[in-house]
Amino acid sequence: MDSTLSRSISLKINGRAVQATVDVRHTLADFLRHQLELTGTHLGCEHGVCGACTVLVDGRSTRGCLMLAVQANGREVTTVEGIAALDGTLHPLQQAFKDLHGLQCGFCTPGMLTTLVELLGDNPDPTEAEVRVAISGNLCRCTGYQAIVDAALAAAKTMRGTAPAGGVR
């Protein structure tokens, strides 16, 4: 394959229409990070294990390191930059992470948040075990996961008490 081959794509990122020309071999994560400078999506292993690069593609959690940018053509992508409300108000998950110390170095955090946004969208009232399964594909070396699990449960509770239920941009 010609490694310099590029293609034009159009997609929605955090609610905004984006058109770009991308090298066909560039991953979605590299496209977001280095072409669009949306550096909130992090790369921890680049082989699909750590989950730090998780973004939502059409609402589904997706490894940004295992998907090519061209595959996002026509899709809607949500990154950690698109989770808070437009006015900057933190998403209940973000707020709960802050209140309950669900992050330390913050490197895995974007992938944790996107993964949990998907979970709470599917299951507004998860058990602790369900939260643990949901983030079992996201590695964190700092927290021992407990505060993340607690934050997810607290955010779920907050969101259940907030009508209408929240979504993401």
Binding site: H34, E81, L90, F97, K98, H101, L103, P110, L113
Partner: peptide, 21 residues
């Protein structure tokens, strides 16, 4: 007290070394 570091890290506005362009 909640950490002063957190807001940027939670909103994708941390500045890690690979974020430097």
């Amino acid at each position: 007290v909640p950490r002063l570091e957190d807001h940027a890290l939670l909103t994708g506005r941390g500045r890690f070394v690979d974020d430097i362009h």
